[in-house]
Simulated assay, not measured.
Amino acid sequence: MHTAIIFGFAIVALVAGNGVRVEYKLTQLHNPQGILSTRKKCDVGSKCDPKLTGYVDTDSPLATWPGPKTKKDWTKIFEASDEDSPKINKIVSRDCCSRDCYRKANLRIDAVDADVTTSDQMEQFECLSGRDVAASESQARWSTEKPCDAKFNPKDVKLNYSWRAFTIPDRECGRPVGSAKKA
C-alpha cells in the first residue's frame, strides 16, 4: 500500500510538472600554476583574473564546441581579480518547458584571463549532465562532484561541478530563478 501511494505521487508530479529544470553547481576553478591555454603564465608577477561566461545547452548538448549559441550571446557566470584558483559557489540553471525537451545538458564555459585592455584564453570547459530527472526539486539529489572536460590543459586546469534535474510546474517554467545564484 505504501509503495502504491509513493508511486501515485510520482505520477502526479510528472503529470503536473510539464517542464524540466537542470541545475549546475560550480564549486571551484583550479589553476594553481596560473596558466593560459598556451601554458604561458596569465600575468607576470601576479595571478590570473578569471572571467567565466557560458550557457546551459539542452538543444544540442553533444554538438562540438561552442554548440548552437555564439559566444557573444553567452552570460557572465563569474569574475575575480588576482586569483588563480577561486571558489565559485554558484548555481547556473536552464528550464526546458516541454515534457520531452530534456535528454541531457552541457554547461559550456569559456574561461579567460580578463585584464583591463585584453582577454587571453585560459580554458574551454564542457560539463555534461546525465539523463536522470527527479519528480520534484525536493527529491532531486546533486550528482557526485567531478571536473568539467577541459580542452587545453585538462591535467592542470579544472572546474568542478555537480548537477541535478527535476520536473517543474508549467507556471514556473522559464521564470527567472537567478541565472547564477549562490550555491
Results as ranks from 00 to 15, higher is better:
140 A>F: 00
114 A>T: 12
182 K>L: 13
156 D>A: 14
90 K>C: 05
90 K>S: 07
4 A>E: 11
168 I>R: 03
78 F>N: 03
155 K>N: 11
158 K>F: 06
174 G>P: 02
10 A>C: 06
174 G>S: 09
163 W>F: 14
155 K>M: 02
24 Y>E: 06
57 D>W: 06
169 P>R: 03
50 P>L: 01
121 Q>V: 05
61 P>V: 10
131 R>H: 14
147 P>Y: 03
23 E>I: 08
85 S>L: 08
33 Q>N: 15
139 Q>E: 12
103 R>G: 13
182 K>A: 14
63 A>W: 02
46 S>L: 04
71 K>D: 12
119 S>F: 01
148 C>E: 04
22 V>A: 01
29 L>A: 04
59 D>G: 08
13 A>V: 09
131 R>D: 14
134 A>Y: 07
88 I>P: 04
154 P>V: 13
10 A>E: 02
16 A>G: 04
12 V>C: 06
45 G>V: 00
71 K>M: 12
91 I>C: 09
20 V>W: 09
57 D>E: 06
157 V>H: 01
46 S>C: 01
23 E>F: 06
172 E>L: 15
129 S>F: 02
8 G>Q: 12
22 V>C: 00
126 E>M: 03
79 E>G: 05
75 T>A: 11
160 N>Y: 14
79 E>V: 10
20 V>C: 01
9 F>W: 11
129 S>C: 09
117 T>S: 08
25 K>F: 14
100 D>W: 11
151 K>I: 06
29 L>H: 01
15 V>D: 03
141 R>T: 15
134 A>F: 10
170 D>H: 05
